[in-house]
Design a protein around this nucleic acid. Structure first.
Lengths: 127, 127
DNA sequence: GTAGTGTATTATATCACTTAATACACTCAG
DNA sequence: CTGAGTGTATTAAGTGATATAATACACTAC
């Protein structure tokens, strides 16, 4: 619900975090989970800005971070494309997972959870 | 390393997040993991501000959130004390864990990890 | 009374984020 | 060649959260 479709991706923006960061994360997520194919073109800066009702500069910022990470290639006059280098994608995916895990474990340890506590906790609420 | 001791707690401030939030989290962590005993007095607003070299208003903000959560009781003219109500502490602890877990799982799912992937991933790098 | 508590207020400064309005360089279809 | 659509850069402005500073007040204990 509430999501906006653009270029085969689903966008869901709120006010909890910077917009450019949400755009970045949601495109990165689409790439990592294979929701969008390698080599595909993503919407132009202006087009996505208009669709999401945000400023082109804000979209631009997200796109630049994607390119810095090697997840996209931009061709002046043509558009922005998902990289075809699967290794880069897998590395990013692994690093994101590592980072999220590290952060999670640190938070849990800081409130007095042990490793076994965490295992047990993750098992809760399963279907 | 780099940590500052104050009132039996260890403080470690950086620029990655708001200062008041870090102070809040680190005191809350101390309580949750039992690093500080129920009923104990924590440093006065002015004292902690001086020790951490930050503004009293910033410390105040953290203290007010702690009290709103029921983790501390403030007695005008006397100081701020950790609650003696262990149930409140355990509830907060559980909620923090739940929140951290939810955030973690959502992040992992968003980059295409399945539940079993995550289990495997958490097992990595163990001693 | 004095010193040490929490608390409130007002003002100021800074920074990140976002928008807006332009302008330029490039590519492609016509 | 022209025009529309790309990415890109620049400058200006506004907003809100954060943090500091200075001050004052209410309360408690000694």
């Amino acid at each position: 619900m509430g999501g906006i479709e653009a270029g085969g991706m689903e966008f869901d923006l709120d006010l909890s975090k910077p917009l450019y960061e949400q755009v970045l994360q949601q495109i990165r997520g689409s790439i990592a989970r294979g929701g969008i194919a390698l080599g595909d073109k993503i919407p132009s800066v202006r087009e996505l800005a208009q669709t999401l009702k945000i400023n082109p500069n804000t979209v631009m910022r997200a796109y630049q971070e994607l390119e810095r990470d090697g997840l996209t290639e931009t061709r002046r006059g043509q558009g922005t494309f998902i990289t075809t280098n699967d290794e880069v994608v897998q590395n990013i995916r692994y690093n994101l997972a590592r980072e999220a895990t590290k952060e999670f474990l640190e938070k849990m340890y800081s409130i007095g959870f042990t490793k076994t506590d965490i295992q047990r906790f993750l098992g809760e609420g399963d279907e």
